[in-house]
Computed example of a mutant assay.
Amino acid sequence: MAPTRVTVWNEYVHEQENDVVADLYPDGIHAVIADALEDHGYETQTATLEEPEHGLTEEVLEETDVLTWWGHAAHDEVDDEIVERVKEQVLDGMGLLVLHSGHFSKIFRELMGTTCALKWREAAERERLWVIEPSHPIADGIDDYIQLEEAEMYGERFDIPQPDTLVFNSWFEGGEVFRSGCCYRRGNGKIFYFRPGHETYPVYYDDDVQRVLANAVEWAAPSEDRSEPVLGNHEPLEEIDTSDDRTVH
């Protein structure tokens, strides 16, 4: 069986403009995520905002089983044509992992149909991500909760559609709670939103966070034996009278 092919997308802006972020992620957040997923047995490649077509050419997306998306400072710089291209791939079956501030990305808002707005605060506070669905494959190998000693707070109300499945719910030291692991299906594709990942904290080096990402890739990857649905005008399965001429098509 061929390994699942993952494209790790990142703006790669903060790492080039902020010394704190550059010290944490000298080769970019995308490099750390890609290396972690490769260690879990996936075939990885990276793409960034400044590349032609943001690194997300038709050829790249056709060869991608799961796309991970990290963005923050430059959501508006992502070309609408590329957003539509990614959306069509998701509807056709490509998995999508939206990470942290990617909640405000064009692609996530397009697929959710809401503002995806939320409360936030940067105070390096403790976060506990409680496992709500321990039997879900994304939570495989995770104990009752993941604890991060330094995190940016995201708080409710999180303006998203009700998740198909809520895998993680976060509590923060300042008292807020947040839906932090949300599963969706759009068309033939699976989407997972995972909250942790603020750029000034070493979140993506955490073993449990890396495990969740690897689990999520496996969950979101399209099935090899997936059948394509039959759509459009269709011949009847049983013998019926089709002589009705009132159609306007």
Rank of each mutant, 00 (worst) to 15 (best):
E149H: 14
L118C: 11
E63M: 03
E173F: 05
L96S: 10
E152Y: 10
A73W: 08
T200Q: 10
N18G: 09
I240R: 09
I191F: 02
A34M: 13
V230I: 11
A73K: 14
R157A: 04
E59P: 01
L24T: 07
D76P: 10
H249G: 06
R126P: 01
R126D: 09
I132H: 11
Q16E: 09
V248Y: 02
I191P: 00
L148E: 09
E176Q: 10
R186Y: 11
K190M: 00
I138D: 01
L166T: 12
T64D: 03
Y204E: 01
V8I: 14
L237N: 08
I82G: 06
V66F: 08
V177K: 10
M1Q: 03
A2W: 03
E224Q: 15
T115L: 03
I107R: 00
G102H: 06
T114H: 04
A73N: 07
Y184R: 08
S180V: 01
R211D: 00
C183L: 15
T48G: 05
R109E: 01
H40E: 15
L237C: 05
I160V: 12
L56S: 03
R121G: 02
R126I: 10
L237A: 13
A221C: 05
T48F: 06
S243V: 03
G181C: 05
P3K: 10
L61G: 09
A123L: 09
D19Q: 15
L213H: 02
T46F: 04
A36L: 03
P3H: 05
F178G: 09
E156S: 13
M94V: 02
E59C: 01
M112S: 14
L118Q: 02
P229D: 08
L237M: 10
E84D: 12
Y204M: 02
H30V: 11
E43V: 04
D39V: 06
R85I: 04
F168E: 03
V86A: 13
R179W: 08
L111P: 04
G41S: 12
N169R: 14
W219Q: 12
A117L: 12
T200V: 09
I138R: 08
N215K: 01
R185N: 14
T44R: 01
E224T: 15
V203C: 15
S101G: 07
G232E: 02
T247L: 06
R126M: 05
F172S: 13
L96C: 10
D76E: 14
M1Y: 05
E125V: 02
Q45C: 06
Y204A: 04
L67Y: 02
E133C: 13
W171Q: 14
V217P: 03
G141Y: 04
S227A: 14
L231Y: 15
D245R: 08
R185P: 12
Q89S: 12
P222Y: 14
G141D: 07
P137Q: 10
R179P: 00
D27E: 09
